[in-house]
Amino acid sequence: MADNITLTIDGHPVSADPSQTVLDAARSAGVAIPTLCHHKDLLPYGGCRLCLVELRQGKRSQLVASCGYYAKAGLEVHTRSPRVLRARKLVLEVLLALMPYSEEIRRLAHENEVTETRYQRTMHYCVLCGLCVRYCDEVKHTNCIGFVGRGVERNVAWVPPDRYDQTCRTCFECMSLCPTGVFPSNFGLAEV
């Protein structure tokens, strides 16, 4: 294991391993960062943008997805700066418009003081976080489901459709990962 490095998170020095992401470093230091598409067993994805943090270097500042940004010595990370909170609220507003009834999203929105959304509410069943697709690929190596289509038509599907009968019937592990709570309830298998 490489030597530990020191970065500052919200003004406090934090010791981290260079193989850790900023998100992991912050969480092990007790700093909470909301995420939706992050899972400890999966590769960083950076899809939900909820974990955005601000990196400052002198006068320069940039927003990065902390789940895919590796810790570096001397990094100045801010997880609750006005810029971060603004970006986080925007993301939550979009998510809230996509899935106004998801408990997980409502909880995150509530925690971050987002009560209303400026966007038109729709009834989606998927936020395209990719947790199920990536779990099926990276952990189970079964590759039953995948993303199909693009843009507004993008969704998760069984490829080919009969993979559901062949493999999924005895697994369904991905369903407990779904942050929307809709995927499992479609099949009446989870307590939602």
């Binding site: 697709v133 590759n143 489901i145 995948g146 199909v148 289509g149 693009r150 490829v159």
Partner: peptide, 12 residues
């Protein structure tokens, strides 16, 4: 390449 990934590209 897993079939879903081929379809992901082909439908994109």
């Amino acid at each position: 390449v897993p079939l879903p990934q081929v379809y992901q590209v082909a439908t994109f």
